[in-house]
Every structure is written in structure tokens, then in C-alpha cells.
Simulated assay, not measured.
Amino acid sequence: MSVNRYHCCATCKHFQVIKESSRTYHKCERLGYETKSTYRFNCWNPKEHVKKLIEKEARNTSG
């Protein structure tokens, strides 16, 4: 598997879920605007647990 499988806003460390009394929305802390969990940007920076999954899959496919 490749990193592309994980590359989306929901797996980025800058992705936030903001809950207000009237609604819930998703925001990119880095870019400063609303986004959707499935969007992809070149500034993607995976969360630690996602990095570990990517590394584990790379080890399993290389051996």
C-alpha cells in the first residue's frame, strides 16, 4: 500500500473538528479555513499513528 491511501485531511495533524451549538464543521488549523475530511492538499502532514501505519505497511511489502 502507498501513502496515497492515507493522504486526506482527516489523517493530517492540522485537521480539526469544531463543534458549536448550532453545527459541527471541519477546519484546517494550518490553512485557516473549512475543509472536508476527504479533501487532499500538498501540505498534508500525517498524524503519528498514520505515520506508523505507513511505515508498517512499507516494511510488510518490502520483505
Rank of each mutant, 00 (worst) to 15 (best):
S37P: 09
Q16D: 09
I18V: 15
R59M: 08
M1T: 06
K19L: 08
K47H: 01
E29G: 07
E29A: 13
E20T: 13
F15K: 01
E20K: 12
E57P: 03
C9K: 03
L31F: 06
V17W: 02
H49R: 10
E29S: 13
E34T: 12
I18P: 08
H7P: 06
A58H: 04
H26M: 05
S21Y: 11
K13I: 01
M1L: 07
E57S: 07
K52S: 14
C9M: 02
L31N: 08
S62D: 11
G32P: 00
N4W: 07
S21L: 13
Y39V: 04
S37T: 09
M1F: 04
N42Q: 06
E57K: 05
E20N: 12
V3S: 11
A58Y: 02
S62A: 15
G32W: 03
T24Y: 03
C28V: 02
C28F: 02
C8M: 11
V50I: 15
R5K: 11
Q16H: 01
A58S: 07
R30P: 00
L31E: 05
A10G: 10
N4I: 14
C28A: 02
T38K: 13
S37F: 12
Q16A: 11
E29Q: 14
E34P: 04
T11M: 07
R30N: 04
E55F: 14
N42Y: 06
Y25G: 02
K36W: 12
C9F: 06
K52P: 00
T61H: 05
F15P: 04
N45T: 14
G63F: 10
T24Q: 12
E55C: 06
R23K: 13
C12V: 01
V50L: 02
S2D: 14
E48K: 14
T11K: 11
Q16I: 03
T11W: 06
N4V: 10
R59Y: 05
H14I: 03
E57L: 09
I54H: 01
N60G: 11
M1K: 05
S2K: 10
H7T: 05
T35Y: 03
A10V: 13
H49F: 12
Y39W: 08
K56H: 10
T61F: 13
N4K: 04
S22T: 14
K51I: 09
K51W: 03
G63L: 07
W44P: 03
Q16L: 13
C9V: 04
E55W: 04
K36I: 08
N4Y: 14
H7C: 08
H49T: 10
C28R: 06
